[in-house]
Amino acid sequence: MGILLRCENVSLGYEGSVVTKDLNFTVSSGDYLCIVGENGSGKSTLIKALLGLKPQLSGNITFCGEVSKNEIGYLPQQTMVQRDFPASVQEIVLSGCMNRCGLRPFYSREEKKLAKDMMKRLEITDLEKRCYRELSGGQQQRVLLARALCSARKMILLDEPITGLDPKAANEMYELIAGLNQKDGITVIMVSHDMNAAVRYATHILHVGGKQLFFGTKEDYMTSKTGQAFLSVMGGDEDE
């Protein structure tokens, strides 16, 4: 499979202070990459850098050919939606289809259907007309997930997707993403603290700390020192 994304000697930070450095990894088409690490280790910053929302301090991030920006889906960890923003669930989910439109001003019938399907899959169809700001945290998360799924055609980046979801919804969510990855061949990059799910679904693991601690396949990770140490602290039986 072809390489989609390549990071070379990337270092990230804010206003001079380095958060993480020496990032060297590649993502190939069809991969399921889990990014793990402690709080504040720079996972979200890395996702933003990959998406071009935040420039890296040094190094190169290159997307290779096959995937263009408007084929990417994104679930932010936090969305700064202001209080009082008038937006219904349906409007928000549909806005995930925006990157399919190009210069076309209105959504096509297929896009509307896609948004409906996603709402059904995430069981938010009956919230369709509700105001986003008046939903519970978990419901809001589902809305943003539905939007991300609408915009993902080749690749999806998820920043802690199961935050706020109940266990049942979290499991369904993982299955849904695994399905997208295996059936539709969508490349997945996910930040997660849920080590159980990471070792279950991912094909590759990227472990970041002050620098890149590990990158490789899941199997290698589980036998590596870093992996075993981290798994014994974070993983095991507990659900996060």
Binding site: L51, G52, G73, E91, S95, M98, P105
Partner: peptide
């Protein structure tokens, strides 16, 4: 541009990240 104005107003980062 109604739909685009909505997307950019609601969540500019998302719009930017997904190639709008």
């Amino acid at each position: 541009f109604y739909n685009k104005i909505f997307a950019v107003t609601f969540d500019e980062n998302f719009a930017k990240a997904t190639g709008v």
